[in-house]
Each structure stands twice: as structure tokens, then as C-alpha cells.
Design a protein around this nucleic acid. Structure first.
Length: 869
RNA sequence: GCGGGCGUGAUGGAAUGGUAGACAUAACAGACUUAAAAUCUGUGGGCCGUAUGGCCGUGGGGGUUCAAGUCCCCCCGCCCGCACCA
């Protein structure tokens, strides 16, 4: 034994080696054990790990280690989400090869993660940019084509005319490309799509069964899928054959979708999307309309831009007839707020009951007729002013609907449409098909070949993978695959003639939509080995940031369904349990000139004033998410170097509830480090040699020993629940309470050593998921080097129920709801005894003197309340 | 606009409708020390009181209940997501 201060640096690397050599965390299928698949969202290899990673992986590690101790076969793997734009940006900025850059980053970050001492089966590691991985992704895509899950079609995209690439919505800032600054255009492009909307109903319905997910995430997905019930029907175009107006069109009618068929008699006009085919047709002969459409497209597609855009329209001059009254003509407008890719791209507007329609109608002086009359109003006098009425009511001004409720009217209109063969009931989803083409180099090549004669031909499976060329240059804009001298030129697999490869690559969200399944059989010759998947899937605890609540999780859910449909494996849902962790924040400061200042450079004067070393003033700017630009990042490597991995892990686990944001503080990490040393002293102190304190507990324990053992077993009971329930901060608090109790135990009688030994042994096993290195070191010290196993292989401590119950309990006594005293009484005392004791308590007696007792409430084991007046 | 969450000491945070503030951080006082660090002990919501104790107190207002931080209604503030989806 030693009284030296704990040396995390030396101890941590020693135990990490021991785990490595013993293959302690190798995941092994064992049909005799329950399984636990613990997964944190795998990282993008950006270069270095950050505190968010530390928090994420520390949480997963606690779960993985706890489950292992509790007898589960545990799968806890790690890999790399390695395709993506930053590698190309690095290539452009620093003239490095994206592949080299990526694998160098992976090497660095793997090294950093290993210093955290995570219980990971590293033999399963892979990167999504490994051809051995994306080979299977390509094969699956071919299976998806066969299964009818893939489409190739035109769609509107955000196009950056300088970088010659499609931009995602989030890459469009104020209508400009985030990189080039060029005004983004809306452009039609032929793209590959995965038909996720085919699964919309199921993806929505199955959310109900995901009770291991945060409610928030389920609601977000529900809103994202956005199911709506309504009607699709047509307006006939009036005077279509009359070419005096110059409005002759090839279509005879305009098809619209609405969720409010009940408001059909409040119709004021129809509106087409600027991208509607009919709009395009009319624009050919109408220069003003053409100019209007172009203006709309220039507005950009970012949500913000669209929202700020004022409602604007263009009267086409075309008229349509009301479906229930051929004599009633309505104007056809083109309106910038009508979306082409929702419903039919055309609407009928009822301004009285839709705010957008109302804004538009007021601007262009179109009629506003209320047809839904709220309670207490009359059809003649009800006026909507500038605020549309969207609530329920009774129909008015609506001919055969008059007097019906909105719900009845809705059904009546659809029924009539269906009887008259004019329209149908229809369910629509806000969810769009998933466009997966990206005009980028650093992604998985889409395995198809374009042949002039045969069209689009899949690459034969035996020719997979289609790998990326290494010799690429980024000195001109656009996709390097497209201007590579040889790569895209190949022969058609069908006819043998010269053909070209698809030069688009997959959206990187595809890579992350099935990696969790690949982890179950990372070396298999097929995407996923069915037996392994059956055993390990679904992921029991999936942990990551809320920012992936929609896309990644929805795509992964879709992929499982698509893989099943394509004949891969049966798995309804990929993630049984889901946990979203909070961010890591840190204080920020600005200098007098407005530039950000490193927090460690800020000096605090005695009067609380802030300054830099040169005396210039500094302003505190609040607690913000760690980011390089705000200069408030804390490097995990430095922290681990100084305090050790265990202290870093303990701090990120103990300082805040895991789903809330964590504020990084120097005081906090120092406090964690102090606790680690305090724990170490429990075994390092020479006063108690516990190595040979083995054997049965004596029957007659002292009061102090009983108190300690009660503390211990209640702690085991509580901590077990806390860790499984992601209440890490509460679990740590309990362990500190137990530590306090242990230190307060001063007895020296014979049995004290046994009690100490029992307590410490359990305490060490309970801290092990959070502070694994320290736990191994303490375990080793407790057994003086002769431990029967690593603590990482030791079983979770068992609760002795005998110590969970108390013989006597202390209950507070309230008088009229206010605590006045407490009574200590036998746990099994009957109500009369409890009542008598409560009334006799001095603090109570004083209060009820002279009052009449009206009622006594006794909650067994909890509280006594005496109602008196 | 729609949806969700949060609001508790100086600070992070505890609290199946049942003793509000566990556990920690900062601070203060004391012990040890030549001194400091480390460590240990104590104080630690506000007000009144030497004290036993009393009153008030979980963003504000109302309600349900023997009992409300917790449940219900209204309001205020902050945070997050979605956002012209007809």
C-alpha cells in the first residue's frame, strides 16, 4: 500500500493496456446471456475530439460497463462517419488528399478516445469511407432499385452557380451560398431519390411503440412527417377553347389539394405554384409572368427567405369554374407562397379562414366571404377583418352545407365529390422523398452507369465496389469526379459500348443509416449477417445529440424498413432506447475592441472587475456552447493530461442531468479530481488492512456498522436504478453520500474490518462504470494485488434486502400542513400508536393546545398530518 | 404563427403529491503548517431572536388537496425545434 497521491497518468495507461491485452470488452454472442447493445452516435473525424464527445462517450461507457457487470453480453463498438464536405474543404484549402486527411484525423482521434479508457470492442472499428464498408452500401442500393425503393427524377434544388454544386437548405444563408457567397438559384436537376414517403404511414404509426425514446423526439418526427387528411379535386378551366384571351392551355382543369373542403363556398381564387407546369406553359406566351416566376425563384429556398418574402401574386387572366356552380368564375393567380412539391402544387383559396389567403386577398383586393360562423355570430354580420378565423363553427353562405358543423361539412363535400366523380379523399404527408445525390467527391459513389442505348444501368454486383480515384484535383469548382480524365469513362455492362459512370455520390446520411447494423458483423461478406443482427439488434441504448432527432434517426428507421423490403433482415425499429444528451457550454469573454478572449486570460479584481494582463477591460458574455470562434473551447486532451480521464469522466457525468446542458468550470473539474483522491485514500490509508478481511458478517452488528451497511445497500439499490435510468448525477451524489458515511465510520472492533471490506468492495464496483481506472487501482489495492479478477470483469454488487428496511423510522408530524415535530417509532407500529406518539410530540402538543382535532392523516412510513382548529 | 421544454440558495442541481434545498461548487471561520498548497472540522435560503424557536420562501397570480416545487387555469421570462405543407 501507498499513501502517495493517486497518479492517474501512470495508472490509466497501465489499466488501458490490461483491458486491451485481456480483450476485456470484446463483444461475444452468448445465447445464455441477455444482450445489451450500447451505441453512441459515431463521430465525424474532424481532427480532434471535443468535450461533447467526452460527455457522449462517458455516458455510453457507464451503461456498457454497468450492463457487463450485470451479466449482459455487451456490444459497444466505435467507428467513423468519415465521408463529407470538410475533407474536401481541407483539400481545397491546404492541398491535401481528402482520404489522407480523413485517415490521419481518425488516427489522432482514436488515440484521444483510447486515453478516455472506454469499454469499446475496437476490433469492430470501421470508417464509412472504407471501400469494405461502402461496397455493401452500393450493393444494398442495387437491391433497393430492384425492390422499387429508388427513383430517378427531376427536382428543384438550391444551386450555387459559382461552386457548381447543389446546396443543402442549411448551407444557404440569406439566399446566398455559405461558401461562395453567390446568390443561390433554384434549378431543376435529375437526382436519385429513396422513396421514404412510401413508408410515411408506417414511420408515423410506429412512433407510438417507441416508448424508450424521448417524447420530444417523437413529436419532432411526427411533425416532420406531417400527415394531413383532405381532398383532391379539380376546377375546370373556363373558355379554354377561346383563344381571344391568349390563355389557351393544354390542360382542361386545375387539380388542387385541400384540408378544408368545407370552406369550398368561401373560395375566392385559385393559386398555382410558380413551379407548376401550367405556370410554365402560360409563361411561354406571357413575358410579365415569366419575369414574375424568375423573381420568385431568385428569392431562394431557405425557410427564412421564404418566410420574410411578402405574399406576391400574378393574375394569369385565366378563369376556373366553381365545382358546384359552373356559372361562378374564379380568377387563377400564380402565388409565390404555393409550394410545388406539396399536394398538387395548386390550391383554392378561402381567405376568410386562412391567414395566408387573407393576406393575399387583401393585397390584391379579392373577395372575402366568411363561411364558417363562430358561435355567437351570424352569417350576415360576421366579418373577419384582417385576421382569418380558423376555428370551428357552423356553415353559412354555403348553400347545401348551411347549418352543418365544419366536420360534417368536410365529409359532405368529399362525399359529393366522390359521388360526382370530381374528387377523392386523400392523405398527404409533409415528408418528401429523400434526394440522395450530391455533386461531391468525398462520398460513396452511386453504382450506376449511364449508357446512350441502354439508359441507366446498375453496376453488376461482382464489379463492386466502385471506388473513388485518389488522383483528384480541387483547383476548379464543381465535382472532381466529373472532370477526372478517366474515372467516369467505362463500358456499358449490358451492351458493352462506351458509357459513363454516375459522378454524383451519396448523401452521407446514407452511410450513417445502417452502420449500427454493420457493427453487429463488421467483417461479414454481406452487409449484415442475419444471425448476428438477430442477436444484437436493436440498439438498446442509443446516445447522441438532439440535432439528429429528425434526419438521422428518421433515415435510419426508414433504412431498416427498406433493408427488410429488399430482403436483408427483419427488424422493425433500429433503436429501442434513445437518449439525447445536452451540450457542453463554457463562459465567454470579449475584449474592449469586441474580439473574443480566452477565459483563462481574464483576471478578476477584488471588486469583481474583469481585465486582461495589460489592464484593459473585459466583458463577460455569458455561457455559450463551446466553439472555436468564441474561444471558449476546453481541450479534452489537456484536461486528461492534467487531471486524468476518470476526473474528466466524473465531471461530465456528475455536474448536470445528462439531458441538460453542462457548464464546464475549472472549479468543477478540480472538485472531481479531489473526490478521486479522496476515494484513493480510502484504500491507500495504512490504518486499515482489509486484504484478509474475508468471511461472514457477525450476527450482532454495532449500531454504527448497521448504519453503514444500511447506507451501503440503499446506495446499491439507488445507484443501480440511477445508472440504468441515465440519472448519472444522482448516482454520483449517492456514491458521495456513501463515501461520507464510510469516512464517518470510526469503529475499531473486530467486525469493523469486515464491514469496511464489504462496503469498499461494493463502492469500488459501483464507481467502476464512471471511474474505471481508479476502480481497478483501488480493487487491486483492496486485494493487495491478489484480486480474483479485474473489477471490469467483476459482478455488480448485490443488494441485501435486510438492510433496506428499518426497524424504527422517523416520521415528520405536521399540524395543519406545517411541520412541527418528528417522531421516531417502530416501523410496524399500528395507526393508534403512531397517532398517540404524534400527538405527544412536544412541538405538536404546543400547537394543538386548545384546538379540536378534526382529522389525522397517517401515510405509513412517510408523514403524519394533524388537522385541528 | 405552431409544437416542446425550462424557471428552486451566491452557483450546478436533489426531491414516487408527503420534512424543500440531498450531493457538490464558490465563500467564510477554525485546526494542522514557519508559511502556502493539500487535508480535516464547522457555518452555509431570507427575516426576527443569545437560544429553544417563529414567520416567509421553489418566476407572478388564482385553484384542487389534510398536504403542491410537483396536479389544473391564467400571466411573465428564457431556451429549443418546425415554419407559407393549403
Amino acid at each position: 500500500m501507498t499513501t502517495e497521491r493517486y497518479n492517474p497518468k501512470e495508472a490509466e495507461s497501465r489499466w488501458q493496456q490490461a483491458w486491451d491485452q485481456g480483450e476485456t470488452f470484446k463483444a461475444v454472442r452468448d445465447e445464455n446471456k441477455p444482450k445489451a447493445y450500447v451505441l453512441e452516435m459515431f463521430p465525424y473525424p474532424s481532427g480532434r475530439i471535443h468535450m461533447g464527445h467526452v460527455r457522449n462517450y462517458a455516458m455510453g461507457d457507464v451503461i456498457a460497463r454497468t450492463k457487463k457487470a450485470q451479466g449482459y453480453a455487451v456490444l459497444h463498438p466505435m467507428g467513423w462517419d468519415a465521408f463529407g464536405m470538410p475533407a474536401e474543404n481541407a483539400a481545397m484549402e491546404r492541398n491535401v488528399n481528402p482520404r489522407d486527411w480523413t485517415y490521419e484525423n481518425i488516427a489522432t482521434m482514436r488515440g484521444q478516445l483510447k486515453t478516455m479508457g472506454l469499454a469499446i470492442d475496437w476490433s469492430r472499428e470501421f470508417a464509412t469511407c472504407d471501400p469494405a464498408y461502402y461496397k455493401h452500401e452500393q450493393a444494398m442500393f442495387l437491391d433497393f432499385i430492384k425492390a422499387g425503393i429508388v427513383d430517378r427524377r427531376e427536382s428543384m434544388v438550391n444551386w450555387d452557380p459559382v461552386d457548381n454544386t447543389v446546396l443543402a437548405n442549411e448551407q444557404v444563408i440569406d439566399g446566398k451560398g455559405w461558401r461562395s457567397g453567390a446568390v443561390v438559384e433554384r434549378k431543376k436537376l435529375t437526382q436519385w431519390f429513396l422513396r421514404i414517403t412510401d413508408f410515411a404511414e408506417d414511420l408515423l404509426g410506429a412512433l407510438d411503440g417507441l416508448d424508450g425514446w424521448p417524447e420530444k423526439v417523437r413529436i419532432m418526427q411526427q411533425n416532420w412527417i406531417g400527415r394531413s387528411e383532405g381532398a383532391r379535386f379539380s376546377f375546370d378551366i373556363v373558355g379554354n377553347s377561346d383563344d381571344q384571351t391568349g390563355n389557351q392551355t393544354s390542360d382542361q382543369k386545375i387539380e388542387v389539394y385541400t384540408t378544408r373542403p368545407d370552406t369550398i363556398f368561401g373560395a375566392s381564387f385559385c393559386a398555382l405554384s410558380p413551379d407548376h407546369p401550367l405556370t410554365a406553359e402560360l409563361a411561354e406566351t406571357n413575358r410579365d409572368l415569366k419575369a414574375f416566376v424568375e423573381e420568385c425563384r431568385a428569392t431562394g429556398t431557405s425557410e427564412e427567405a421564404i418566410q420574410r418574402a411578402e405574399k406576391r401574386g400574378f393574375d394569369t387572366g385565366l378563369k376556373v369554374a366553381h365545382p358546384f356552380d359552373p356559372a361562378w368564375e374564379l380568377p387563377v393567380m400564380v402565388a409565390n407562397f404555393v409550394l410545388m412539391d406539396y399536394g398538387t402544387g395548386a390550391i383554392f383559396a378561402c381567405p376568410a379562414h386562412d391567414q395566408r389567403d387573407l393576406d393575399f386577398a387583401r393585397k390584391y383586393d379579392l373577395p372575402v366571404t366568411p363561411v364558417v360562423i363562430p358561435e355567437g355570430e351570424s352569417a350576415d354580420s360576421f366579418d373577419v377583418g384582417d385576421e382569418a378565423y380558423t376555428g370551428p363553427g357552423v356553415m353559412g353562405n354555403s348553400r347545401f352545407l348551411d347549418g352543418m358543423t365544419t366536420d360534417d361539412a368536410r365529409a359532405a363535400v368529399i362525399d359529393k365529390f366522390e359521388r360526382d366523380n370530381k374528387g377523392t379523399r386523400e392523405v398527404n404527408f409533409r415528408l418528401r422523398d429523400w434526394g440522395v445525390s450530391r455533386q461531391r467527391y468525398w462520398g460513396c459513389p452511386i453504382p450506376v452507369i449511364h449508357c446512350n442505348d441502354c439508359g441507366t444501368v446498375p453496376v453488376p454486383k461482382q464489379d463492386l465496389p466502385v471506388t473513388l480515384p485518389d488522383d483528384v484535383s480541387f483547383d476548379r469548382p464543381g465535382n472532381p469526379l466529373d472532370h477526372h480524365p478517366t474515372w467516369k469513362h467505362t463500358d456499358c455492362p449490358t451492351c458493352g459500348k462506351a458509357a459513363v459512370r454516375e459522378t454524383d455520390t451519396f448523401d452521407t446520411f446514407i452511410d450513417s443509416s445502417w452502420y449500427f447494423a454493420r457493427f453487429t458483423s463488421p467483417h461479414a461478406d454481406e452487409p449484415v449477417n442475419a444471425e448476428d443482427a438477430r442477436y444484437w439488434m436493436p440498439v438498446d441504448n442509443y446516445i447522441g445529440g438532439i440535432e439528429h432527432a429528425i434526419l438521422h434517426l428518421l433515415y435510419s428507421r426508414f433504412f431498416c424498413r427498406a433493408m427488410e423490403k429488399a430482403g436483408h433482415f427483419h427488424l422493425p425499429e433500429p433503436f429501442k432506447g434513445m437518449f439525447t444528451q445536452g451540450m457542453v457550454n463554457h463562459e465567454t469573454y470579449k475584449a474592449a475592441d469586441g474580439s473574443w478572449v480566452l477565459p483563462q486570460d481574464v483576471l478578476t479584481a477584488e471588486d469583481g472587475g474583469l481585465s486582461l494582463a495589460d489592464g484593459s477591460g473585459v466583458t463577460a458574455c455569458g455561457i455559450e456552447k463551446m466553439s472555436k470562434s468564441k474561444k471558449n473551447v476546453v481541450d479534452p486532451t489537456e484536461i486528461i493530461d492534467t487531471y486524468g480521464a476518470d476526473a474528466a469522466r466524473l465531471f461530465v457525468l456528475s455536474d448536470s442531468p445528462p439531458d441538460r446542458d453542462l457548464e464546464w468550470t475549472d472549479a468543477g473539474i478540480e472538485g472531481a479530481f479531489r473526490y478521486i483522491n479522496r476515494l484513493w485514500r480510502l484504500v491507500a490509508a495504512p490504518s486499515h488492512n482489509l486484504a484478509d478481511q474475508d468471511g461472514d458478517r457477525p450476527a450482532d452488528l454495532s449500531d454504527a456498522a448497521t448504519t453503514l451497511l444500511k447506507n451501503l445497500h440503499k446506495t446499491i439499490d439507488g445507484v443501480t436504478g440511477d445508472l440504468n435510468g441515465f440519472r448519472f448525477n444522482r448516482g454520483v451524489a449517492r456514491l458521495r453520500e456513501l463515501t461520507n458515511g464510510y469516512e464517518a465510520f470510526k469503529e475499531e472492533e473486530d467486525s469493523a474490518g469486515l464491514v469496511r471490506r464489504e462496503t469498499l468492495s461494493a463502492l469500488i464496483r459501483m464507481i467502476a462504470p464512471m471511474m474505471p481506472h481508479l476502480a481497478e487501482e483501488m480493487w487491486d489495492a483492496l486485494y493487495q494485488g491478489a484480486a480474483p479478477s479485474l473489477v471490469s470483469d467483476a459482478p455488480w454488487p448485490a443488494v441485501d434486502p435486510a438492510f433496506l428496511v428499518d426497524d424504527t423510522i422517523t416520521m415528520p408530524v405536521q399540524v395543519n400542513g406545517k411541520r412541527r415535530d418528528e417522531v421516531t417509532i417502530a416501523a410496524d407500529a399500528d395507526e393508534d400508536t403512531i397517532r398517540d406518539a404524534a400527538l405527544a410530540a412536544p412541538g405538536v402538543a404546543k400547537q394543538i393546545d386548545g384546538l379540536t382535532i378534526r382529522k389525522t392523516i397517517i401515510v405509513p412510513g412517510r408523514i403524519i398530518n394533524i388537522v385541528a382548529n
